[in-house]
């Protein structure tokens, strides 16, 4: 683990019951400003890994260090502080927003919990009130302010996903987990969302853990790629080495399937 590492996963082992483990002694690093892609078929443990990294579920063995701090058995107060530096965008934008809560309240929930905090990318507008901050956040993801007082069912899938992205960056996190953020969207909207995520990463110096089974999306977004199968890491490489002969047979198989 170097000073440039934001997430260090060491020997992570997770079982849901006494049966087959979902994650088998996983280890990897994520560097600041990097996008680490995770690919694998359904059931390979990608989403479980994401939930462990966000400390939303517990794990049996190993440790996850976030900015040098071990997350296992962390006191709730400390965990709350750490989580303010993390963000998440999940696959299904429809379930990521409470259907009975207006967009402004969903969007501002993280900032409402950290009262008085204004993200530095909005700090030049120190006079901004709650609505002002919400408008700026929506503008960052290319949505007009009129959406603030709408309910989620009045927005399209792509628009909802933009709202969840705006919410994820609102506390200015250092690290965002993107768990198949484009899986439920049509191809055109997928491209728009991926470009938006890439632009935000550059402008806000974010680190991403990008989970997908879409190799093209992972290739477009990531600096490095990890391939998972049945809870094991079977391959990891820099994105430029994706077509190298040294690739694991399972990676080649995935590439072949994807090439059609």
């Amino acid at each position: 683990m170097t000073h440039n590492t934001i997430v260090h996963v060491m020997n992570l082992h997770k079982c849901y019951s006494t049966e087959q483990p979902v994650l088998h002694h996983i280890s990897f690093d994520l560097k600041k400003g990097e996008c680490l892609g995770i690919v694998g078929e359904s059931g390979s443990g990608k989403s479980t890994l994401a939930r462990c990294l966000l400390s939303l579920i517990e794990w049996q063995q190993g440790q996850i260090y976030f900015e040098g701090l071990g997350l296992k058995n962390l006191a709730p107060k400390q965990l709350r502080k750490v989580r303010a530096r993390m963000g998440a965008v999940f696959q299904n934008a429809s379930t990521a927003l409470n259907p009975s809560v207006r967009i402004i309240d969903s969007l501002m929930e993280p900032l409402d919990e950290h009262k008085g905090y204004t993200p530095s990318f909005l700090a030049q507008d120190s006079w901004l009130g709650r609505i002002g901050i919400a408008e700026k956040l929506l503008a960052l993801v290319g949505l007009p302010e009129k959406y603030l007082f709408k309910y989620p069912h009045e927005l399209s899938g792509g628009e909802k996903q933009r709202v969840t992205i705006a919410r994820a960056i609102s506390t200015e996190p250092a690290f965002i987990v993107l768990d198949e953020p484009t899986a439920s969207l049509d191809v055109t909207t997928q491209a728009i969302i991926l470009n938006l995520l890439k632009d935000l990463k550059e402008s806000l110096s974010l680190s991403y853990l990008f989970i997908s089974h879409d190799l093209a999306a992972v290739h477009f977004m990531s600096d490095r790629i990890i391939v998972m199968k049945n809870g094991h890491i079977v391959d990891q490489f820099g994105v430029e080495q994706i077509f190298s002969d040294e690739r694991h047979s399972y990676t080649k198989q995935l590439l072949q399937v994807f090439a059609g």
Partner: peptide
């Protein structure tokens, strides 16, 4: 949305 609320503290 519950997981995200938890994550938001």
């Amino acid at each position: 949305y519950i997981k995200l609320a938890e994550l938001a503290g």
